[in-house]
């Protein structure tokens, strides 16, 4: 039972295509596990659809005009691509990681190349665009997450096990949204070791609009 969901601001920014890749990875992974957030995300897509439907009149008519040549060129592209190849429907997932995460890891949890970071904690940094970073964390049951010094916004999605901090308990599928103002010390629960996907824009070189974006929703 997922108790901690994505915020409207995150889902809208994802739907609008404005999130850094690392944050999009957390959103896509959570949505893979959570139909409630999938429905909210798709309703934000519907807002985009409504804008697309309504806005044609407002751009310069010359710039957006299409003609028969345009249609013919598009049909030529379609023919050049050959018959539509329908992908087989995705198979029901067997492993721990949802598909978007599998694509970044190159496999499931057994394919992760962990590096020890002290106190039994391991991490693996995932390759994303550099405006934010994503990593997997492995926290042995009962262990505390070492200070990972996030200065920006941090999203932490639990994939296995659970952790607690000063704010709440986070179990499988739950996502914690923390800003730099939130000083927390997560501790993994007893039971299965805790595996999380975390994204942060802390090591930024240039400022991202994300922390600003998230703030109004988090200070409630």
């Amino acid at each position: 039972m997922i108790r901690h969901h994505l915020s409207d601001a995150l889902l809208m920014a994802y739907s609008a295509g404005q999130l850094p890749e690392a944050f999009s990875l957390v959103v896509a992974t959570h949505v893979s596990l959570c139909d409630e957030c999938r429905a909210r995300m798709e309703s934000f897509d519907a807002v985009g659809g409504a804008l697309l439907e309504q806005d044609a009149g407002q751009a310069a008519p010359d710039a957006i005009a299409v003609d028969d040549a345009s249609l013919a060129a598009t049909m030529a592209r379609i023919r050049a691509a050959g018959p539509v190849r329908r992908q087989a429907p995705p198979r029901r997932r067997q492993g721990l990681f949802p598909t978007p995460l599998v694509e970044y890891v190159g496999g499931d949890v057994d394919a992760v190349r962990w590096r020890a970071v002290g106190g039994g904690v391991r991490q693996a940094i995932l390759p994303t665009a550099r405006d934010a970073s994503a990593r997997l964390l492995f926290i042995p049951a009962g262990a505390a997450v070492p200070d990972h010094g996030h200065r920006g916004t941090e999203l932490t999605l639990v994939l296995q096990g659970a952790f607690r901090d000063e704010f709440d308990r986070f179990g499988p599928g739950d996502v914690e949204i923390a800003t730099e103002a939130d000083e927390h010390m997560p501790v993994a629960e007893e039971g299965p070791d805790c595996i999380c996907l975390a994204a942060t824009d802390a090591p930024l070189r240039f400022s991202s609009f994300l922390p600003r974006l998230l703030q109004p929703f988090l200070r409630i």
Binding site: G17, E21, T29, S32, E42, G48, G49, A50, T99
Partner: peptide, 29 residues
């Protein structure tokens, strides 16, 4: 989803490829 919404998602993804040149992870189907 409505057709306009469907078209929007395709156009948005294409725009991300084009302007940001980064991947957009998608939820699993």
């Amino acid at each position: 989803a409505g057709v306009a919404t469907w078209v929007f998602t395709i156009a948005r993804n294409r725009r991300i490829d084009l302007l940001r040149r980064s991947r957009r992870p998608e939820p699993e189907d």
